[in-house]
Write a protein that binds this DNA or RNA. Structure first.
Lengths: 233, 233
DNA sequence: CGGACTTTTGAAGTAATTCAAGGGGAGTGG
DNA sequence: CCACTCCCCTTGAATTACTTCAAAAGTCCG
């Protein structure tokens, strides 16, 4: 078994940065592994919290559903990031559903072990605070955008964010590096897939983006920035 | 100086629950006090993070502003709650502005001390995680409401939440226990003060609420629940 | 090649904003 | 105590950004 690559990765994740070699060994020893194919569900909204995961490879989507079935996408989770934060904050059920959107590889720990780790190695709890604080801040910004901005601008901001956190340089521009349908984008932005489709079509005509089935490439990111941040008068 | 009442309060706040008497003494010794009149600003968005506060008495409003001046209200903060969470998560600037909406009394610690406390008493970091996790979850729910629900329903949910966290039983019903203008409510809900005004007027006609200048009383909370949660068909 | 899903685009409808104007309450200062 | 001012609130009417409804075309996969 090739443990060392994982051990390497550990030290670089947001959650375990700065932990002692001893702590890393303990984490290593107590970890479980999990592989998911694209479309598989890691955990479901309302389920009892049993584990915390860190993404090694792949990408997942955290979403929230209302009783009436309406769904929104909270965020996408990539390598090095935490999935299933409920175990981190001591919540007994998962607030959302996490689904793999690409084949993914994760490592996980039970809630009890997570608790132990944080008590033994406070740096982990402090790291967790930092990352949760960052997520909270992102949410504030999204909430503000959703409250005050028009759809076109929100789509712009959302695409720029996605490109920033998981863009891949290509010949044609920056490609969002995972399958993202118009519906997905709509559920991130708070609109309908129709409006997203229309907006992307208009942008494609102006050469700003280039899209296909579940694919978006930002050809002129600066033009998108202009749309997203331009002064309103 | 009457230190003991504060010491009493400490142990009951969300952040310091379960801390040892020794820790409480240290907290006590290193704390600063701050009094604010209604309208005073505790800290401003973009300011360097210097301190963390816990509200002893009064109420404050955390808000976020965009470049264009558009503002939203993130949340109201009451006794026992944390204000200025940036110091908790190691962010170097404050993500929002916190303003007193009633005369308030707070205690605070510098960022350096907060860091020390968390390293020495991991329980505090774990408590911080729990409370931030709860706030994050609340944000997810608001984001979902804002994305998927109509204004009337959102106003309903918002009022119910406010009543829950700071409602005061009165003869006429549950009163939101701090000044809350139509504009404030609009900035929480993501709409205009006009729409809020119209909605409240309509509800007042049906006897569901009773409002005045910066005052809202929920006379028939169950009717509001029906509006907020009723199945759509 | 059928079938499921994604995407596009037009047309109609509407919830909510924007525009506009007036009324009222609270505090201030003469 | 009255006049003045500053908010806060209310209510109509016009406008619009976006949704909803509808239908068809494209794309992937077994």
């Amino acid at each position: 078994m090739d443990y060392s690559p994982d051990l390497d990765l550990f030290a670089r994740t947001e959650l375990f940065q700065g932990t002692s070699p001893e702590a890393l060994r303990f984490l290593q020893a107590s970890a479980g592994r999990r592989r998911l194919a694209a479309g598989d569900i890691l955990l479901q909204q309302g389920d009892r919290t049993t584990s915390l995961f860190v993404v090694i490879a792949g990408r997942l989507r955290a979403s929230q559903m209302a009783q009436d079935g309406q769904q929104i996408i909270i965020r996408y989770i990539g390598p090095g990031e935490v999935a299933g934060y409920a175990a981190l904050v001591g919540s007994d059920t998962h607030p959302g559903t996490v689904t793999a959107v690409d084949d993914s590889h994760l490592i996980g720990w039970t809630s009890a072990i997570v608790r132990q780790i944080m008590e033994r190695y406070p740096i982990v709890a402090i790291n967790a605070l930092t990352l949760l604080g960052r997520r909270y801040h992102e949410m504030q910004i999204r909430l503000r955008e959703l409250s005050t901005e028009r759809v076109e601008r929100r789509i712009g901001h959302t695409l720029l964010r996605l490109a920033h956190q998981s863009g891949r340089r290509t010949a044609r521009g920056i490609e969002i590096a995972f399958p993202l349908s118009r519906r997905d984008l709509a559920e991130m932005v708070g609109t309908t897939l129709h409006t997203v489709s229309r907006t992307l079509s208009a942008w494609e005509e102006r050469g700003i983006v280039s899209c296909g089935r579940c694919r978006v490439v930002l050809c002129k990111p600066h033009a998108l920035v202009a749309i997203a941040d331009e002064e309103e008068e």
